[in-house]
């Protein structure tokens, strides 16, 4: 791949790749390792991509496979990352901080599906194709993830929306799009 092309792609996808790896592994150092491997694989990738969407999907798939392999390793795989490994939440608002911690309390498979669906805005069908998992499994994981997330937030004693505490999740801002 051309050097300039690579730099452009790195600029475009670096946060996405890192975010996915971090969301999966909950560990900064591992997410950095996975990101480096993924981009170097892209750099060494010989074939061409049909379009930018297929390139993006390829990057996500490579990242998820690398995360999966890392998690499976013998000792490393069973290391439990605690919140100390999460990035500093100083830059977060109160709402964001609560949500952030709640998301990272979820099992990784739910975190990933929620991230791809709500952040990357992929459909269930697209996620299914990227992750090579049955659509109904993705849908189930999404539903369960949402429920668990709701529970996590409720455990924190109500979710703050603006200055008002909302204890019921169906009480929402009328214009907002909700999970």
């Amino acid at each position: 791949m051309d050097k300039q092309d690579f730099q452009d792609r790195l600029k475009l996808y670096k946060d996405m790749v890192y975010r996915i790896a971090f969301t999966y592994l909950k560990n900064k150092a591992d997410a950095e390792d996975i990101s480096q491997d993924t981009f170097l694989k892209l750099y060494l990738h010989e074939g061409s991509f049909k379009d930018s969407e297929s390139e993006k999907a390829w990057l996500i798939r490579v990242t998820l496979n690398a995360c999966c392999n890392l998690k499976k390793s013998f000792w490393q795989g069973r290391r439990e990352d605690m919140p100390e490994n999460l990035p500093s939440t100083e830059v977060f608002t109160t709402e964001e901080s609560r949500l952030y911690h709640a998301v990272f309390e979820l099992p990784y498979k739910y975190r990933i599906v929620i991230l791809l669906y709500y952040y990357e805005e992929y459909s269930v069908k697209e996620i299914s194709s990227i992750m090579n998992i049955n659509q109904s499994t993705i849908q189930t994981q999404l539903d369960r993830g949402r429920k668990k997330l709701k529970k996590q937030l409720e455990k924190q004693g109500g979710f703050y929306y603006g200055k008002e505490v909302i204890s019921e999740y169906n009480v929402t801002h009328k214009n907002a799009e909700f999970l």
């Binding site: 946060d15 890192y18 969301t23 990035p87 830059v91 929620i114 991230l115 709500y118 952040y119 909700f178």
Partner: peptide, 19 residues
């Protein structure tokens, strides 16, 4: 929960410049 809030929250996760 607001989708926008979720996106804002997760957008704080960024690749460090050293990486």
């Amino acid at each position: 929960m607001e989708k926008k809030l979720f996106q804002n929250t997760m957008s704080h996760i960024r690749m460090p410049s050293s990486c």
